[in-house]
Nucleic acid binder design. Sequence first.
DNA 1: CACTAATCCTGGACGC
DNA 2: TGCGTCCAGGATTAGT
Length: 269
Amino acid sequence: MPELPEVETTVRYIKEKIAYKRITSVLVRQPSLRYKIRSNLPKLLKNQIIQDVSRRAKYILISLNEGYLIIHLGMSGSLQITNAKEPIQKHSHCDIMFDNIILRYNDPRRFGCILWETDLASNKLLANLGIEPLGDDFNGQSLYKLTRGRKVCIKQFIMNPHNLVGVGNIYANESLWKSGITPLKPAKECSEKQCELLADEIKNTLLKSIAAGGTTLKDFKGADGKLGYFVRQLQIYGKEDQACPKCGSEIKRVVIGQRSSFYCLKCQA
DNA sequence: CACTAATCCTGGACGC
DNA sequence: TGCGTCCAGGATTAGT
């Protein structure tokens, strides 16, 4: 599923393809996503020129002459640059057409969204987002400050987009294992040193995955857009009952906040 | 205010 | 083979 690295890779790729191009038409086949696609979207977008493509958390932001397109890929969404000759796939819900190319939104589980807003500040979804893990203001110190007084466990804390954005279940598991912190530890009990380690590992994991993103992106053409290449780099996620790559003891699985969590009893305290 | 559980949806894995 | 059941997952919303 698209996590922050996949979204970032998608943003870079589509920006290159559609920047400064004019939208000729828009076709909505299935408006029922996480939020319904507004019925006047084609009218709103026609003849608009793409000014910029950027990212905030896992939201893809497309600046137009008037207003913004806000796209989220949800669990299973992907954006492809394609053309009219390519056959429509089963879950291709929306086409944004340019002179020679089409930006095609595909999302089997329909957890994503395609919204239009006059300005970003008035959008509720963007209003209460936490810190960007790859931004300059995220580091051990800021993580330490944020976690003070928070008794929720550290895994849930870093996965909550009001605290920190873009860290999904897989990246949370991997970075906690790498920094030797048990996912069950109350956030407020993480030391300065541990916050330092964790912040570094979150950044590392995301950056590595972005570096692998080019390869992942090619896999987006496949039906499900699932992990593809990056899945091979996983050390702990989904490895229940297998040996910890660091110490060899058995990896445990627990459910935290309805999410599977994998950790090593020996390495993570 | 802080935290928990339910929710949206489909495809894939699994048991019978 | 085919049916039913369950699970995965991000982020919001309703509920405690």
